[in-house]
């Protein structure tokens, strides 16, 4: 039986914001209200939820960028926050915004990452080019500044950055949001190919139901900081007596995906 890549138990996160004329009023926003989930090694797990449901907060906690207010977290056998360094060495992250030095080229950005993870230049360049080729990226654009690339191209470089260091666990935070249909297809195909070739464990957050169904072995539905349902897409459909994930969401949450997205503003 495969061991666990991610074990999250009763994890909570509260953000406190000061309001009022003298900023003396404190408003608490409960981003995660005791999340428990497990992802097995080699599995692709999808977190489906509207904006503000807590998906990105959970990803940022697992990436060591946020500290949880309660609960237990273990990544590939390492507890957080005690073993941040070990986790950082083994986790790659792609966020919805391709955060780069926009004036630098793809080559320069990727080399910087490679050096940061202690890799050597020739290996890093070869690997980066290979990944970009598999993603359908034109190699001749390797030396162009990122600011001259489309959003889709930037996101492909972002994926190359995350994979450059061979992470056994990949955290994909809405990697296809805002991409054109062709780029979206290429990224999705690449993720499928990656799982087949490398057996990488993937935690994917998305609000695209079709994407979750296509790429993930299991799906968790997250809304208002709570995991309300979990299972394979078939299991979820059968539990809810629905024939698509949109209808599953409506049945489980009591409102449509769009309505939930309008109401919640915390992420």
């Amino acid at each position: 039986m495969p061991s666990l890549a991610i074990r999250v138990q009763n994890v909570k996160k509260v953000f406190r914001k000061r309001n009022g004329l003298l900023r003396r009023k404190i408003r608490e926003e409960h981003a995660l209200k005791g999340i428990t989930l497990e992802v097995r090694e080699g599995e692709a797990y999808g977190l489906l939820g509207p904006n503000g449901s807590g998906k990105s907060t959970l990803i940022r906690i697992l990436s060591t960028l946020l500290l949880a207010d309660g609960g237990d977290i273990e990544i590939l056998g390492f507890r957080l926050p005690e073993h941040e360094r070990e986790v950082r060495e083994r986790v790659g992250r792609v966020s919805v915004d391709a955060a780069f030095y926009k004036k630098l080229s793809a080559r320069e950005n990727l080399l910087y990452t490679a050096f940061l993870y202690g890799f050597e230049k020739p290996d890093a360049e070869r690997k980066a080019l290979d990944i970009l080729k598999r993603l359908g990226q034109d190699a001749s654009r390797f030396d162009d500044p990122l600011e001259e690339m489309s959003r889709g191209m930037q996101q492909k470089v972002s994926i190359a950055r995350a994979l450059l260091v061979n992470p056994p666990l990949l955290l994909l935070d809405e990697p296809t949001t805002g991409l054109d249909p062709k780029s979206k297809q290429e990224v999705q195909r690449f993720i499928e190919d990656l799982r087949r070739r490398e057996g990488t464990t993937i935690l994917l957050t998305t609000h695209d139901m079709d994407e979750a169904e296509r790429l993930c072995d299991r799906i968790g539905i997250l809304t208002r900081g709570q995991l309300v349902a979990e299972g394979t897409s078939e299991e979820l459909k059968s539990q809810a007596g629905a024939d698509n994930l949109e209808a599953v969401f409506l049945k489980m949450v009591g409102e449509s995906f769009e309505e939930a997205e309008k109401e919640v503003t915390v992420e």
Partner: peptide
């Protein structure tokens, strides 16, 4: 300003 702080902070460099 570049938006890269999180990526630098999650690298395994002390």
């Amino acid at each position: 300003w570049e938006g890269t702080l999180e990526y630098t902070f999650m690298a395994p460099a002390s």
